[in-house]
Write a protein that binds this DNA or RNA. Structure first.
Length: 302
DNA sequence: AACCTGGTCAACCGCTTTGCT
DNA sequence: AAGCAAAGCGGTTGACCAGGT
């Protein structure tokens, strides 16, 4: 199957850590045009990055609803229990932790929780952690607890866990949660520039590409890459055009819809019914949409 | 002060899956 | 059915930092 070379192999692209300006440019572009079409995004936004890199940066760092750091005790507990059930399905685990990314959870597991679990495994007689003690407290009130719900980390690691292997599927119908209005968005993302002042960002963009060119020369390539910014169409519009362009290009988000009351797509319960019957869940599994914590506490798990 | 070591996490990389033609 | 593009996923890497020697 022919495959075009990975965009990361293209020459002239910036790599490594993102600069504040690149973040601003990416944020501003996505606010104007929405997510998606990552392959074309860098060129249109005027970024010297590959689409993959842009997507990752947005999803893991720039999204307005991202919670960063300070993983709470409850979250930690939930991660452990989800990992017992799902294995290294980080995106699925992250999906149950609002504001957390799969990358963050994966890193947190690899650096913190995984070690805890390993330590408990290697020394099964080791003292229980406070977390596991609290889990035991819970279980003390649950006489029907099963092996699939370990009472502590040691048991979680020592007991063969039942990992649910889900089949990855693209989500074509989504629930749109409460999206912030544009004003709310700005207050959430204080570092973002005002999208209604594209000229200011455009001047920064020019210096960004000049700096990139300098970096290339310093790097010994002696090669002045043709900047994407010269081809970019992102900043070639006025404030009025910006306002009019929300959602009009490429069928992306309509930001006008983001203003005013919360809008959500009608939810059909049969969607969930189908999901539970078509996927790997047991027939007698009682799915509670509100909370996976409830799900995990359910005695219906095998 | 200089060096070493280990921890953290953002970013990269390669692969898989899905949807479209 | 086959080919391709786009998106998503999970493992790995490497830069950075703090603490220890």
């Amino acid at each position: 199957m022919g495959r075009s070379p990975c965009c990361s192999k293209q020459e002239g692209l910036n790599r490594g850590a993102w600069t504040a300006l690149e973040d601003k440019i990416l944020s501003a572009y996505i606010r104007a045009h929405g997510e998606g079409k990552w392959r074309y995004l860098p060129k249109r936004a005027g970024l010297k990055r590959c689409g993959k890199s842009c997507r990752l940066r947005w999803l893991n760092y720039l999204r307005p609803d991202i919670k960063r750091g300070n993983i709470s005790h409850d979250e930690e507990e939930l991660i452990i229990r989800l990992h017992n059930l799902l294995g290294n399905r980080w995106s699925l685990i992250a999906g149950r932790l609002p504001g957390r990314t799969d990358n963050e959870i994966k890193n947190y597991w690899n650096t913190t929780l995984g070690k805890k679990a390993k330590a408990q495994t290697s020394s099964p007689l080791a003292e229980q952690s406070p977390m596991s003690k609290s889990q035991d407290k819970k279980l003390a009130t649950k006489p029907n607890s099963t092996a699939a719900e370990p009472s502590n980390l040691a048991q979680a690691s020592a007991t063969p866990t039942q990992v649910i292997r889900t089949k990855a599927s693209r989500c074509t119908k989504v629930l749109i949660p409460a999206l912030p209005s544009l004003n709310e968005y700005h207050s959430l993302n204080s570092t973002a520039i005002d999208p209604l002042e594209p000229q200011a960002l455009q001047s920064q963009l020019q210096s960004y590409h000049q700096d990139s060119a300098k970096r290339d020369v310093r790097g010994g390539t002696e090669e002045l890459h043709e900047t994407c910014g010269q081809e970019s169409d992102f900043f070639n519009f006025s404030s009025n055009e910006f306002q009019a362009s929300h959602g009009d290009r490429n069928g992306d988000y309509n930001f006008n819809n983001m203003q005013g009351p919360v809008q959500s797509l009608p939810f059909d319960e049969t969607m969930f019914k189908d999901w539970t019957t078509n996927y790997c869940l047991e027939d007698n599994f009682n799915l509670d949409i509100e909370s996976l914590t409830f799900l995990l506490d359910s005695d219906e798990w095998p």
